[in-house]
Simulated assay, not measured.
Amino acid sequence: MNHFSTQYQQQRAWVNINHQALVDNVQALKSFLNPHTQLMAVIKADAYGHGAVKVAQTILQSGVDSLAIATLPEGIELREAGILAPIMILGAINSIEQIKDIVKYNLEPTLCTPHQAFIFGETLAQLNATLSVHLKLDTGMSRLGTHWHNGIDFVNYIQQFPQLHISSIYSHLATADDVDTTVMKLQHSRFEEVISALKATGVDIPRLHLANSAGTLCDRTLHYDMVRVGLALYGIYPAPHLHDTIKLQPALEVKARITQIKTLSPGTGVSYGHTFKCDQATKIAVVGIGYADGIPRLLSNKMKVIIRGKFADQIGNITMDQLMLNITDFPDLEVEETVTLLGKEGDLEITADDWANSIGTISWEILCSFKHRLPRVVIENS
């Protein structure tokens, strides 16, 4: 069923979110995991541009065990929308006021340093409150986390605070999407070394997690008690060599409407800077979407769109609110017709990977770029 309201039928451009694809991706991931491994869905950055609240509602009903976000406001938004599942904050929180909100909204923070743990412990003691917390070790990402060499001391320090309940210990892989697994295996061995040492000292080991999307798909020994899956949830493979692991379906499409059609004479320049000049009489379509909506300007003169099941070339520099297409081979197109910028139409498909590869970036950035003046339209295929 396609819930496409008359409100969105009037939009110049919009984003379709296929929630059946999300459900299918969750099921594919759950089937791939080790039997006792839980699935944590990473829905930070508004679920990678897919709409965090609605995505959370759908995937929790489909078997996701818990959620992860990056910032406190992201967690508050989910709680205020009625989401009751465990929510882990991946980013580092250091503010006393934010700690109070974490308690209020029953969120689960990441602790990265002893100093941060001290602030939490002291604040919680004053509030007469306790929290489930997740301890992060830096095994080679060189971002957040206590250095793995100091992992045992870090865990022992946390245990001095009765207000802090260690829900998990985790780390993050820096190169799991590389064909060369040398660094990933090194990080894995470092993580294992800390965990083995903790066991030897009699520490009651909580849940462990290490794998992101790439780690989940490339090596089942990384699954542990839980995996943190972001990109794969939305139907995008984190690397080409992982395409044959499971079947994923992109959940996001970008659509826009033609707003004007005109024919240009030979030699006429198109858009700012005249980076494209017509070498013959050229019929063009102006489309109501641009870089302010999240279409990378670097795609200018490089991207294609799909119209009526055929590819059409984008020409000239992409502007803030509009872009132009060469539709010379589409003689009967009309204003208000729909153009597919990302997505599938017939046998043709344009993916976030296609855009990313064209401009030297990653599909994560593409998905997170679509601005909120593009309405999100939920598509449910029954």
Results as ranks from 00 to 15, higher is better:
D153E: 15
T268E: 07
V23I: 08
A81M: 04
T130C: 12
L325Q: 06
A211S: 15
K104C: 08
Q61H: 04
A85E: 00
S171F: 00
L233T: 09
I307A: 06
T351F: 13
M141V: 15
D219M: 04
I158C: 06
Q187K: 02
F330K: 01
G140A: 08
D347Y: 05
F161V: 05
M320F: 07
G343Y: 00
P73S: 08
Q116Y: 03
Q260A: 10
T221F: 07
A81R: 09
R228K: 12
K247L: 08
K54N: 09
S363E: 14
V270C: 02
A281W: 06
T37Q: 13
A312S: 11
E349T: 03
E80H: 12
V155F: 00
A214C: 06
N156E: 04
D313I: 09
V305N: 09
D138E: 07
E108N: 15
K262Y: 07
R308Q: 13
V227A: 04
N128A: 13
Q20S: 03
S168L: 10
R207D: 09
G51E: 14
G269H: 03
T340D: 14
A68Q: 08
V53P: 01
G294R: 04
G121N: 12
S5M: 09
D219N: 05
L135I: 09
E380D: 10
Q10P: 00
G309W: 05
G360M: 01
H36Q: 08
A251N: 06
C218K: 12
L374F: 10
L127A: 08
H3C: 06
T201W: 00
Q10L: 10
T275K: 11
Y234P: 03
A174G: 02
A200D: 15
L137P: 07
K104N: 05
I102K: 06
S142P: 00
P238K: 07
A251P: 01
K100L: 10
T201L: 09
I169N: 05
K247Y: 14
L374W: 09
K310S: 15
